[in-house]
Amino acid sequence: MAAYTVPKAFPTTVVGSYPKLPSAQEALRRQRKGEISEDEFKRLVREAIRGVIEDYIWAGVDILSDGEQSREDMVVYFAERLRGYAPGEWVRIFDNVYFRKPIIVGRVEWVSPMALDDWEYARSVSGGRPVKVILTGPYTMLEWSFDLHYGDRREAILDLARAIRREVDEYLARGAKYVQIDEPALSTRPWREEAELAGEALEVIFRGVSAKRIVHICFGRIERILPYILDYPVDQFDLEFKNSNFRLLPYLKEYGYDKELGYGVIDVHSLQVESVEEVKKAIDYLMKLDIIGPEKIYIDPDCGLKRLPRRIAREKLRNMVEAAKLARKEWAGEE
């Protein structure tokens, strides 16, 4: 398979989730009812992953994900596969959308690879484009679970971090180049102590990792925790900007931000497709602030695309990629 060359300036990527394709919906529905075997579940999920990858390639995205097609939810999926968790009951996320908030009832431990099959399959059909490893972080796992076992948050988060690190090792052994830990809950408690706790957990997950280390945070007052997280052992922060009208950018300037940046320019909660010009303008805005160079800027959506209709997600990605191409030409002289 020919190696794919990721552009040096403004590479495009995704945060992770993609709208569930029909075969993934069927797989999850039938799995819940106990109607299908694990092999049949995997077959249906793989069909969906292939469709996701085709969409990404059609749009021109450089660094891909498996679309999280087998994950009913970013927390529940892992909770179902870790020792120490019990199934939860329905709790609302927004409107009439619910998730089965899992319950920690014992010491959390890794049992076996949790998302490896999907990642490997995505990689096998990506035409050489790199596929990110995307795992839910320990802070978010705890915050979005009920804890009936630990009582001590630090103890719980560090056990979760050790379990996730064990999972990361599986991917590293197979040559993973990008490892992203999703910590959307981190912005919900924007205190120094919380940021330090999450940082301690990231140390456990990323210690000695040579792949690109990414942490994704979104939807909250990220500016409040920014001063406390800049020293995290990561190469890249992947952050939401579009939904919060880019209000975070001046703070990056103020704090002398110099890591790589996953620059969220697509609103994943809006059905309105951002135009190429709109996304390009957002990139121009960042460049004019002169915070970091184009080789450190990864263009992507604010968050996962799972809540959007597939057609909208595709169009958004396509326009995002086109805007990145224009920016590449203008700001980095690359075709």
Binding site: R92, I93, F94, S187, T188, F219, N243, D267, S270
Partner: peptide, 14 residues
């Protein structure tokens, strides 16, 4: 308009 997190909860409001 879109949804945004309600304080420090995993709950979002319009």
């Amino acid at each position: 308009d879109g949804i945004i997190r309600y304080f420090d909860n995993n709950f979002f409001y319009r």
